[in-house]
């Protein structure tokens, strides 16, 4: 049983980017079971930009599942953004999940934007001024919704999709001082509260690709400036060799076992 996932975040699409991803995206049909988008799909979160995202990432012949990022909230047009993406059959998750029937089994994706707050021992606390308490409560409520969804999904392979980072490992390369704005340990706790196979996030443009939660779940930062390609591909399955990375011939993406 193998589930094949493509993922990228922080594509920041506007008119000037239209067509850049498309040649690579058109190779996805038949190669993967789903494309996951880890937030910051747009520059300013306008409906017009979301329509550009829909043109670039819609109609690919594979299910596309997304969470929004902080950029997608900038112009306070979230309902219009979600609506424009929905018209292109792009599913936007925020505290909920979806189960996809794939040839290799049922893929469950739980998604939430998440929020900052920092990591264990160096994080903000629900204490003091109302603004600080509101900040931390946003963090904990978001992580709680992720955890509840992960625990509720009935599937064979479970993936957590966020914009903010659930661990500090994948922030390596960012200044330590801004870690509390890039993620929070509560998201990691949520990931570890369920049998999650993989956690995907974006947001940290100067971060690094790989990490694990304290509970041992693999975490991948798929922010576009980090992966430096149109998307990354992950194969999740029981029989695969640990840590194996398969080469791809010049002709494009190939099945690693073919």
């Amino acid at each position: 049983m193998v589930i094949r996932i493509a993922a990228v975040g922080d594509v920041h699409v506007d008119e000037d980017v239209l067509g850049r991803f498309r040649p690579a995206l058109e190779q996805l049909a038949g190669s993967v079971d789903a494309l996951l988008l880890a937030g910051d799909l747009t520059r300013h979160g306008t409906e017009a930009e979301a329509r550009c995202v829909a043109r670039e990432f819609g109609g690919l012949g594979v299910p596309v599942v997304a969470v929004l990022g902080n950029h997608d909230h900038q112009c306070d047009e979230v309902p219009q953004v979600v609506g424009a993406l929905a018209e292109a059959d792009i599913t936007v998750l925020e505290g909920d999940g979806v189960v996809l029937d794939c040839p290799g089994g049922r893929l469950g994706v739980a998604g939430v934007k998440g929020f900052g707050g920092g990591f264990a021992g160096r994080c903000a606390s629900d204490f003091g001024e109302p603004e600080m308490k509101a900040f931390v409560r946003t963090t904990t409520e978001s992580a709680d919704r992720l955890g509840e969804t992960l625990r509720a999904l009935d599937c064979d392979v479970l993936v957590a999709l966020t914009h903010y980072a659930p661990v500090p490992d994948t922030l390596a390369g960012e200044p330590l001082e801004i870690y509390p704005f890039l993620g929070c340990y509560q998201l990691g706790q949520a990931v570890d509260s369920a049998p999650t196979a993989l956690a995907l996030h974006g947001h940290a443009h100067h971060g690094s690709e790989r990490g694990t939660t304290p509970g041992g779940v693999r975490v991948r930062n798929v922010a576009h400036p980090v992966i430096k390609q149109a998307y990354s591909i992950f194969h999740l399955g029981d029989h695969l060799d640990q840590g194996e990375v398969s080469g791809v011939a010049a002709g494009g993406i190939q099945q690693p076992w073919s």
Binding site: F21, A24, L198, I227, Q229, I233, H235, G247, V248, I253
Partner: peptide
Amino acid sequence: AQAPTEIEQL
């Protein structure tokens, strides 16, 4: 923004 040349198996 090119297609990837490798697949990570997990």
